[in-house]
């Protein structure tokens, strides 16, 4: 496993994490936890196999298990920009250089469909995001979610139909719908 291969995948890991976790800070924490686990388990990675699929599997497990390096008290809480948990200055110097206008613009665009996605059961949201953002094969999604391909297909079908209703405004409250 070459670090360069990890670094070139960073923007895509961040994109998926943001869509999965919603909030930018939690998304980057998820990416960081995933990278740390990747190095800790690097001996298990078979050279020549698909690094992206492996990393997305790790990220999925980190996310599902809620394995968090930081204390649960920090999770989801508002924290001042540039400060990590406990008031420790974070090393986000490159992030601080990001054009704030571009970021705000991106977040505004994300919010509309993001809100609708957030109402889906996570299993459906994951399948939809991996296809839409990563163009991942159904087979790879099935192995990430540890279910048969048929289950991925029905998650896609139900999730997309539900999303259509939500975006049409004909969906009604999510709580009234029986979802598996």
């Amino acid at each position: 496993m070459h670090e360069h291969d990890l670094i070139v995948l960073l923007p895509r890991l961040r994109r998926y994490a943001r869509a999965l976790a919603g909030d930018a800070g939690r998304a980057d924490d998820l990416v960081q936890d995933t990278l740390e686990r990747a190095w800790a388990k690097s001996a298990l990675f078979r050279p020549g196999s698909d690094l992206r699929a492996w990393l997305f599997t790790l990220m999925h497990n980190v996310h599902v298990n809620g394995v968090r390096r930081r204390s649960p008290l920090d999770a989801g809480g508002a924290r001042p920009p540039g400060q990590g948990p406990g008031g420790v200055e974070r090393e986000d110097t490159l992030a601080a250089l990001a054009d704030p206008a571009a970021t705000a613009e991106g977040d505004a665009a994300v919010s509309d469909i993001g809100r609708a996605l957030a109402q889906l059961p996570e299993t459906q949201r994951v399948a939809i995001l991996l296809v839409a953002l990563e163009d991942m094969s159904y087979q790879d999604i099935a192995s990430i979610q540890q279910v048969p391909v048929g289950t991925v297909m029905s998650r896609l079908a139900r999730g997309r139909e539900r999303l259509r209703q939500l975006l049409d405004g004909t969906g009604g409250p999510a709580s009234l719908r029986v979802v598996k």
């Binding site: 670094i7 923007p11 961040r14 994109r15 990278l35 992030a95």
Partner: peptide, 15 residues
């Protein structure tokens, strides 16, 4: 909606 995230600078802590 998520396309612009790919062009954002990656935070140093992730690199």
């Amino acid at each position: 909606a998520y396309a612009s995230l790919v062009d954002e600078p990656v935070p140093a802590r992730l690199v």
